[in-house]
């Protein structure tokens, strides 16, 4: 089988690899980079447990090809925590009991991050719509919605700190 050379930046690190053109992005992230927080649940772009951000946009990595990520930037759940500090969405999911079995959680959080980066103050309806491509079988979504609202509040509060007041932040 022929391979194709790709260079993909994942969570800030650029990886060069030779991959089969048919290799799925989810497989590349899981098996080659061992980023196993990327889960696979349905193979048909329906459940969203494989959601990653491609140049900031949430995509289902189970139906994208690795070669499509060539020269582009990917963020996964493993890139959320920075220098030992949880991303506000991670902290909020834990605080609001937004997860149970944890299988949908990485994809759910990545879709939420994309939402909050484009809309820092989403309504419940906007949250539910933004997450409607991500299934959860455990939580009934209520605490996920709460988690996203709480993360939004925490991010807004953090950003409201006047310049200079947060020395060293």
């Amino acid at each position: 089988m022929t391979t194709q050379h790709i260079e993909v930046t994942v969570n800030g690190t650029t990886h060069a690899a030779d991959v089969e053109p048919r290799q799925l992005l989810a497989f590349f992230l899981r098996e080659q980079l061992r980023l196993t927080g990327v889960h696979v649940g349905c193979d048909t772009t329906s459940c969203g447990v494989c959601t990653v951000l491609l140049d900031g946009v949430p995509i289902k990595s189970c139906t994208a090809l690795a070669v499509q990520a060539d020269g582009r930037e990917i963020r996964t759940v493993e890139g959320l925590e920075q220098n030992g500090t949880l991303h506000p969405i991670q902290a909020a999911f834990m605080e609001e009991h937004g997860l149970q079995c944890g299988f949908c959680t990485p994809g759910m959080m990545m879709a939420s991050v994309a939402l909050l980066e484009s809309n820092p103050n989403p309504s419940e309806e906007e949250i539910r719509w933004a997450l409607s491509g991500n299934l959860c079988r455990c939580t009934g979504y209520m605490n996920i919605v709460k988690s996203v609202r709480r993360a939004a509040e925490n991010i807004r509060e953090e950003n409201a700190v006047p310049v200079g007041a947060g020395e060293g932040r």
Binding site: R30, L35, T36, G37, V38, H39, V40, T76, V77, E78, L80, E81, L86, Q90, F93, M94, L99, G102, F103, T105, P106, M109
Partner: peptide, 14 residues
Amino acid sequence: EDPRFIRGKGTYID
């Protein structure tokens, strides 16, 4: 159990 799951560090069968 949450700290591992929110980091994508659960160990599922696959």
